[in-house]
Design a protein around this nucleic acid. Structure first.
Lengths: 146, 146
DNA sequence: AAATCATATATAGTATGCAATGTATTTATT
DNA sequence: AATAAATACATTGCATACTATATATGATTT
């Protein structure tokens, strides 16, 4: 079996672009004390919601221990607070602190801007196709992961 | 600024698909004692080449300390060996061990198969478009990262 | 040849991600 | 109600990735 070019492999290419996204986002968020893993959490809590770890796990589509660690760091950095869930003693409800809410405004702007810059070489039609294909590929991979 | 859906963001979606790729690949490679980060290295060395860390950094498009750690683990696991570069005392040349070469055969098959499965929902034309768009988005992001 | 600059790698520190497993609480079954 | 099963979360261990920085060697300049 002959070696293949990286640009011929969807796995390599997707990983490459994802790392570039994260690198650029993290560099620009760092001065704000934020990072890419905070974004799905802040986005979910940005309207003032108080959500459980489990809900955030589903929203961010990461494994539970990953979200636990992210929330622990965000709590440490005063971006979120944890309150006991009155209906379930196993669970806590997370919400943004005031500081977290302020930071979320910046984060949102930075992230949307980088997304726009990244897609600058695609037409409007292609942008939709790009997102739609990612969704289809992701769903195929989710089946493989079950 | 209103919250956006994850499926509308190229950054989220690319990251999501990349993590799914890695998860599936890593699960299937684990029984072979391999992982996704080994693939670009094995692919580069699979023809018997002996390459420096620097060359592998460029091929895999990761930062130098990342490749250093990956090579250290691969060396520990007897997948690659390190030999002094006769032309430059700062540098070593890495090549696959016999064990690494055997494993590479399996890895290659597993990886190509997962790639094919992931793209099963795309037409042949779309597969090319997917790769081509990733390349364009990646190049835009590389500019942002400079 | 000595001093300077550049290059290749190493190391420390941290974040993000996964798998595997343990614990407390809740829900379902008998 | 007691027991069993399911659920929510915590914890441990490790891999992969980044930034920042240090060290050794090589190349260039003076």
């Amino acid at each position: 079996m002959r070696a293949f070019r990286r640009t011929d492999s969807a796995g390599y290419m997707t990983n490459w672009v994802a790392r570039l996204f994260a690198k650029v986002v993290d560099r620009q968020l760092k001065p704000h004390g934020l990072s890419s893993a905070h974004l799905p959490v802040m986005n979910a809590l940005g309207d003032g919601s108080a959500l459980s770890q489990k809900a955030l796990v589903e929203i961010a589509a990461v494994e539970q221990p990953t979200m636990a660690a992210t929330l622990a760091r965000m709590e440490r950095d005063n971006l979120v607070i944890r309150a006991p869930d009155p209906n379930d003693k196993r669970s806590s409800l997370f919400s943004l602190t005031e500081h977290g809410l302020e930071k979320f405004q910046n984060a949102q702007r930075v992230f949307l801007d980088i997304n726009a810059q990244a897609l600058i070489g695609l037409t409007e039609t292609e942008k939709k196709q790009y997102l739609e294909m990612l969704l289809r590929v992701g769903k195929s991979l989710e089946k493989l992961a079950d």
